[in-house]
Design a binder for these strands. Structure first.
Lengths: 173, 173
DNA sequence: GTAAAAAAGTTTTATTGCCAACCTTCCGCT
DNA sequence: AGCGGAAGGTTGGCAATAAAACTTTTTTAC
């Protein structure tokens, strides 16, 4: 059976021949590439579940903190609060999240998972466990805790930097 | 006409009281949060330079690999090739990048920096060095190499997974 | 040689994200 | 009270991204 042999891919520059220059060891670049790879790997795992991978953290945080407000939720998962509005609209419409008014403060909503939302969270958690097992293998059990602590430090220190803005060393063009 | 109020963001709900559940130690989540913080910190540093931070890797890769094709470039910086089209249009329009046809293959373009593009790259490199020095301080010199090697491993291993994955991504449009 | 398949780029469509402006509600003052 | 500012949430505008469909050109199969 004459299956067509795959021709050798001939891009102008093979990917392994690329010169990354300073990017090679630039933490910001590697962080972005690793995050992108991790996200897409999880998306493949979670493909069967009828929910976008970005919704996972939202569901988990609501499930763990019933009654949480939208602003607190947006802070917890590092997204702008306006980003949350369409997401929650969708989750409520699909019967996964319940949004109820707070009696003593009519500005805020109280968020909670419905029974269906909890089932969905369980399915996603199964994907996450599988994904995390992959990452465990890649990182190595011994380094995992240390690696996580560095990620947390980056997150915390750079976020607090937001307060003291850099003095602008303006360059002319 | 009411004067627009200066909004001062206050952490109304204590973010430290949030229960992150399994997210607390989930590598994918921490990667996303750290990457987001790093990206925004760099964006603040590069604010003065008249170029979006996302363009930096693109310029660096073109500068280091003159004659590279768009597809090879998209692979090298981990973005879809369709994403590159408007970016390059903009860079060409601003005189930073030159796009020329390859004589023996009229499908591909050859990308290269103009003199202005090289100057811009130098400015951005200065920001990157400053940013990286911050990250050095946070990570710690001793752990830096190890941390980078883990990020590279995540990137490589999870990307290679993509090849032998089920091709079942049917989406209606 | 010619037709089919593959590759490079572009366009279209949809999602996700931020920011700024806005509305409503609450709270602190006087 | 009632006024002004602060806080919770929504809306609109814009940028970045990816996936699929499409165009042009090249390569492969026969």
């Amino acid at each position: 059976m004459p299956r067509k042999p795959k021709p050798v891919k001939r891009t102008a520059q093979a990917a392994n021949a690329i010169d990354y220059g300073p990017l090679e060891d630039w933490v910001g670049f590697r962080l972005r590439m690793a995050q992108s790879a991790s996200f897409q790997a999880f998306a493949r795992l979670a493909h069967d579940v009828n929910l976008k991978p970005g919704r996972f953290a939202t569901l988990m945080l609501i499930g763990r903190n019933p009654g949480i407000s939208q602003t607190a939720l947006s802070l917890a998962n590092g997204r702008d609060k306006s980003t949350l509005t369409p997401v929650l609209n969708d989750l409520v419409k699909r019967g996964l999240v319940r949004r109820s008014r707070t009696p003593d403060d009519r500005r805020t909503y109280q968020l909670a998972l419905t029974a269906a939302g909890q089932r969905m969270l369980k399915q996603l958690a199964a994907c996450a466990i599988s994904h995390d097992r992959n990452l465990d293998r890649i990182i190595g059990r011994r380094d995992r805790a240390h690696f996580l602590s560095i990620l947390r430090r980056i997150e915390v220190e750079l976020s607090s930097d937001r307060a003291n803005e850099k003095p602008s060393g303006r360059r002319s063009r």
